[in-house]
């Protein structure tokens, strides 16, 4: 199916759950609210014409600097191996109490990237079996890929350098 046909099909199947659609550079993109995301995912996977059986990735995005509402977004990339088409689903997530339902019950491959979503953005993935740190150490404070997380060096606890001054690790604002 072409991107236009995918969007038509999704619109026909789930008229009230789709907030918006887009075709940037020819890719099929749909916008979904977190509440209806699991139902949409279920439809996308099980509908015979769409059959998005392959979960490629989910990424978090923080739109703090653009001052966009809602602040966070989790973007899902899905493929259909049989029909050889793809779709991108953008789920906007509110700043206070950010959470999104898990789709790891539909695609097992979503387990790790969803955990990373929590690790890096602090987005709580409801229903995920292991909502804990994945890449950052256990007990790490803050969510590194949020835009308000400063780009600093980690404090050094041990150094071979005798003249080591703590000024060296002071934060420097990112240059644009």
């Amino acid at each position: 199916m072409t991107s236009e046909e995918i969007i038509e099909k999704v619109k026909a199947g789930l008229a009230d759950a789709i907030q918006d659609t887009d075709l940037p550079q020819g890719d099929a993109v749909i916008f979904v609210a977190p509440d209806s995301w699991h139902a949409v995912a279920d439809f996308l996977k099980n509908d015979a014409d769409l059959k998005f059986d392959y979960f490629s990735d989910v990424r978090g995005v923080d739109y703090l600097l653009e001052e966009r509402e809602p602040r966070f977004e989790s973007v899902y990339q899905l493929y259909s191996i049989d029909h050889q088409h793809s779709i991108r689903v953008r789920v906007g997530i509110d700043e206070d109490n950010p959470s999104v339902p898990t789709v790891s019950d539909l695609w097992k491959g979503a387990l790790y990237p969803e955990q990373e979503l929590f690790d890096m953005f602090g987005i709580n993935v409801e229903g995920h079996p292991t909502m804990e740190r994945l890449i950052m150490p256990k007990g790490w404070e803050g969510f590194p890929l949020r835009k308000d997380y400063p780009l600093t060096t980690e404090t050094v606890t041990f150094s071979y350098n005798r003249d080591f001054k703590s000024d060296l690790v002071k934060s420097k604002p990112p240059t644009r």
Binding site: S56, D57, R59, V61, L65, V75, P113, R176
Partner: peptide
């Protein structure tokens, strides 16, 4: 693949790598 979000400047707003090894570990 890289998922890139651009805000119109000369610096990307978000760069996310889809890494096959990462996805295969579980």
């Amino acid at each position: 693949g890289f998922y890139i979000v651009s805000d119109g400047t000369n610096v990307p707003a978000r760069v996310k790598l889809r890494a096959p090894s990462f996805m295969a570990i579980p």
